[in-house]
């Protein structure tokens, strides 16, 4: 059993699901069984945004120590602003709006990669520098941009099938596809190879530079897309709407069982971790505990997870 868990990689993400289920059950008990399904439905809806940005962050982190995309929050905000102004409240412009948000992300990601390559600086520093510029652009662009999202988009973000948000179903399909990309494509395998040992990957014929570029672009494109979707969900653009995604994207990746030492990643864990974090909030709210304790517990949880996973080579 233990061997099977290890070999299939289930062990990596099992913890997040056990945590999510436990927290949900506790919530249900506290509330005497009321609202059990509603809690889960809400969690599945909110989890979408965390999971989408965390997917990009996960590919970045999987390429090894020092690789973290700090520009995600800024890109989320900018993507939201661009999408809303392209859509301009019109249902017909929803698709072009999303495409514009993705294109924005691709531009940011390429810029990140260009900084890493040209300035020979650690990715964290490169994405940090670019995040300042992108965030400023987003603030400037988004100021006074009080455009309501198109009705059809807003409807979509709240649509449900059998209590499950449609948005969630689509996102699950997407993450399944990304799981296939990670395991079954040359690109995905290249990411994992580089994360384990970039030099060995190069000597084994992996195109390290191209893989890095794709990875940073993918992360930023997903951030841009998430921004557009989140704006639709929350009824418009706000200037600090991306802020919560900085720490959250890393937290979801780490709790989901991806190794910050690189080379080990999984997608199911992202859903588990995102649900875990959201349901934890719900549980603590139900127990009448404030947001301070909630954050405190989140932090302790992250440290506990990494300490339990510990002993790996230093992930810088």
């Amino acid at each position: 059993m233990a061997a099977w868990l290890a070999r299939t990689g289930v062990r990596d993400w099992l913890f997040a699901y056990v945590g999510a289920v436990t927290v949900w059950l506790v919530t249900v008990v506290i509330a005497d069984g009321f609202g059990a399904m509603q809690t889960l439905t809400a969690g599945l809806g909110f989890a979408v945004f965390y999971v989408l940005v965390a997917t990009g962050q996960m590919f970045v982190i999987a390429t090894g120590p020092g690789n973290i995309d700090l520009s995600i929050p800024a890109t989320v905000t900018l993507g939201a602003g661009v999408a809303m102004s392209v859509m301009a409240g019109s249902d017909a412009m929803i698709v072009p709006g999303f495409l514009a948000a993705i294109a924005t992300g691709i531009a940011v990601g390429s810029f990140n990669y260009a900084l890493i390559r040209a300035l020979r600086i650690p990715p964290i520093i490169a994405t940090l520098s670019s995040s300042f510029v992108v965030q400023s652009t987003a603030i400037w662009y988004g100021r006074g941009l009080s455009i309501k999202p198109p009705d059809a988009l807003q409807d979509f973000t709240f649509a449900r099938v059998l209590d499950v948000p449609v948005m969630t179903l689509v996102a699950v399909l997407f993450t399944m596809a990304m799981a296939v990309v990670l395991r079954r494509t040359v690109y995905g395998r290249s990411v994992l190879a580089i994360g384990q040992n970039p030099k060995a990957a190069h000597l084994a014929g992996v195109d390290v530079e191209r893989t890095r570029w794709v990875t940073y672009t993918l992360s930023a494109a997903l951030a841009g897309f998430t921004g557009a979707l989140f704006a639709g969900f929350s009824g418009g653009v706000s200037l600090d709407m991306g802020a919560q995604f900085l720490l959250a994207s890393i937290a979801v990746v780490v709790i989901g069982g991806t190794s910050v030492a690189g080379g080990r990643a999984n997608l199911p864990g992202l859903w588990g971790a995102a649900l875990f974090l959201f349901l934890l909030v719900t549980m603590l709210n139900a127990a009448g505990v404030g947001s301070g304790v909630r954050q405190l517990l989140t932090g302790v949880l992250i440290i506990a997870v990494i300490t339990a996973a510990g002993g790996e080579q230093r992930g810088r």
């Binding site: 120590p65 973290i68 964290i124 720490l247 890393i250 937290a251 780490v254 910050v260 030492a261 404030g290 947001s291 301070g292 304790v293 909630r294 954050q295 405190l296 517990l297 989140t298 932090g299 302790v300 949880l301 992250i302 440290i303 990494i306 300490t307 510990g310 002993g311 790996e312 080579q313 230093r314 992930g315 810088r316």
Partner: peptide, 30 residues
């Protein structure tokens, strides 16, 4: 000490601490 003894990635541990400090801040000053 924890980072050194368990050979942990500092970036993740301090990320966790970030939540801890913000949480404590809210508890101290709601």
């Amino acid at each position: 000490a924890l980072i050194e003894l368990r050979n942990l990635p500092a970036i993740v541990v301090t990320l966790g601490m970030s939540f801890v400090w913000f949480g404590l801040a809210v508890i101290v000053l709601p």
